[in-house]
């Protein structure tokens, strides 16, 4: 039986979709079968970030409404054969996502995949609750700013109250993923310190993803950063986070860009 991981945050634009794609690809690279479900009905994004937008035929809502079978809607990644995407509907009404339909899809996926990753929409409304509903594990994506931290805190409260696990008196395993971390701004005091975020949210740290233009480049290329640039600082940060999800104990570091000096040398030689 596979594990269900929800990537959630409360706030929008913090890096949930980026992280769902990067972690999914990293887990697939490690030899596991992974499917990522886009729960952001009407604002679907994951297909773009994974470069599959032209291959979407059926979506999650088609499956729930019985217009397509689950295997018909799954899109296999072209670069990583163990990675699949279940896209959201861009046109349907959000209410078409029913609790029972979502439960059935997740049960089916769980039986065949090692990881079922749910990319949550922003907010604390129905869509976000549905995305977290069946989670065993949650990655709470937080940016080092006070509004993001507060929204994450709110989401943690919901994970403890509204999920299937919570209803059974169990707990969703919660991890903090700090994204878009800018070291220079953190040291100048513009941003919250990692220790403060961990103290406020009091959940263990899964990783620190540095702010990097490589992420934007990857998303414009339609490729998860862990596939198109695994050696970049954010790429390495996501690979370590994926290892921690697999239970490996490795110290948390803030990866830095290695190739800057290298790039300059190459440039010098070319000149």
């Amino acid at each position: 039986m596979g594990q269900v991981l929800v990537v959630t945050s409360g706030k929008g634009g913090v890096g949930k979709t980026t992280s769902a794609a990067a972690l999914g690809a990293a887990l697939a690279e490690s030899g596991q079968n992974v499917v990522i479900i886009d729960f952001d009905v009407g604002l679907r994004n994951l297909d773009l970030v994974m470069g599959a937008e032209r291959r979407v035929v059926f979506d999650l809502i088609n499956v729930i409404q019985g217009q397509a079978k689950l295997p018909q809607a799954l899109i296999r990644d072209k670069r990583q054969e163990r990675l699949y995407l279940l896209p959201a509907s861009q046109t349907r009404d959000k209410d078409a996502l029913t609790e029972r339909g979502v439960a059935r899809v997740i049960d089916d996926l769980r039986a065949t995949f090692d990881w079922v990753i749910c990319d949550s929409p922003a907010g604390i409304e129905r869509g976000a609750i549905l995305a977290m509903q069946h989670a065993d594990i949650a990655a709470i994506v937080t940016n080092p700013e006070i509004s993001s931290v507060r929204d994450s805190d709110r989401i943690i409260g919901l994970l403890d109250a509204k999920t299937e696990k919570a209803k059974k008196g169990q707990q969703v395993v919660k991890h903090l993923l700090v994204a878009r971390y800018d070291e220079s701004r953190a040291s100048s005091g513009d941003m919250l310190q990692i220790e403060d975020i961990v103290e406020i949210l009091s959940i263990p740290l899964l990783g620190i993803i540095p702010e990097s233009e490589q992420v934007l480049r990857a998303s414009n290329l339609g490729s998860p950063i862990t596939i198109c640039n695994p050696e970049s600082a954010p790429g390495r940060a996501y690979f370590s986070a994926a290892k921690r999800l697999n239970g490996e104990v490795i110290p948390i570091t803030i990866p830095r860009e290695r190739n800057r000096l290298f790039g300059r040398l190459l440039g010098g030689r070319a000149a």
Partner: peptide
């Protein structure tokens, strides 16, 4: 957590963790 409200009028409340903003 943020957004939670605990009301207990019968007596004392002890919180082992923090009370969030």
């Amino acid at each position: 957590r943020s957004g939670q409200s605990i009301v207990f009028t019968n007596g004392d409340v002890t919180v082992l963790g923090s009370i969030s903003s």
